[in-house]
């Protein structure tokens, strides 16, 4: 009892800090749900008097936001699927197998981990132009498959798995692919879940690469689309906040569904972007 009383101020302090941190998100949804004519008020009303879905109707009628959301799901989804496959394969090879050149390859990969993404932005743009992939979905997806954080994550995890099962499977005549597919992949599920969440979130939120690579607004992912809304509806904050709310909801839903993986991911992988 006394411990609860002693801890009460700490709880109050943390809850206030949490509320402040969450407040912009609350303000975003509140603005989006205000009747269009009341979005701008002096003074602004932090507790709503009236709610309306008018802004949502306007948004869905006048902008390609649905198209942008579908694009984002496709782009982030395809990148995530390939990362799960390729990173677990490479992570397995780097963690458990011996082959000439392994150390050099892994050293090259690790040495680029701190390179800011903007360093490769212009050359990647040139390469995609040379390949004729500017303004295409593959042009956005392929460079997304090149980030090596997942290889690192999978290697670290697979290293901790016992080797006996692999040996036993080989003795039973399993091929190398079967060892990977039926031993390594199932045992790596927790790390794969973390990788999936992180990769999907990263590419759901990606901005500068698609901004530079895509020209056709019909191909935009939602973040780039939102930035163009900003230009189009400059001070129509009801519209802008509604667009932002629609883009925020899927990620918030993913977070509530997979909280544990998010927190676990930070502990394993650090605070990566």
């Amino acid at each position: 009892m006394s411990s609860i009383r002693r801890r009460l101020p700490v709880h109050v302090l943390l809850l206030v800090a949490g509320a402040l941190s969450l407040f912009p998100l609350y303000w975003l949804f509140l603005t989006s749900l205000s009747p269009t004519q009341y979005v701008v008020r002096v003074p602004p009303e932090v507790v709503p008097r009236e709610l309306s879905v008018g802004n949502y109707q306007r948004l869905f009628e006048t902008t390609p936001i649905v198209r942008w959301l579908v694009n984002t799901v496709v782009i982030a989804g395809v990148i995530t699927a390939f990362h799960l496959l390729f990173d677990s394969m490479a992570g397995y090879a780097f963690a458990k197998r011996r082959f000439p050149g392994k150390d050099v390859m892994f050293w090259l990969i690790v040495s680029t981990l701190t390179v800011p993404a903007q360093v490769t932005l212009i050359p990647v743009f040139f390469i995609l132009r040379a390949l004729g992939l500017l303004d295409t979905y593959p042009g956005v997806i392929l460079p997304g498959l090149a980030d090596v954080f997942g290889v690192f994550l999978m290697k670290q995890f697979i290293q901790t798995l016992p080797t006996e099962l692999e040996h036993a499977a080989r003795v039973d005549g399993a091929s190398e692919w079967q060892v990977y597919r039926h031993i390594i992949v199932p045992l790596s599920r927790p790390a794969l879940a973390v990788l999936a969440i992180f990769t999907f979130q990263r590419y759901w939120n990606a901005f500068i690469f698609p901004l530079v690579i895509l020209r056709d607004p019909a191909k935009y992912p939602v973040q780039v689309g939102l930035a163009t809304l900003q230009g189009e509806f400059n001070t129509d904050y009801g519209m802008l906040m509604t667009g932002a709310a629609v883009a925020a909801l899927p990620m918030i839903a993913v977070f509530f569904a997979f909280q544990r993986q998010f927190v676990e991911g930070i502990r394993i992988g650090g605070v990566k972007g």
């Binding site: 941190s21 969450l22 939120n205």
Partner: peptide
Amino acid sequence: LFYLPLVNSAIL
């Protein structure tokens, strides 16, 4: 609670 605000994109 403290991680939730960070799942959103820098843009929004």
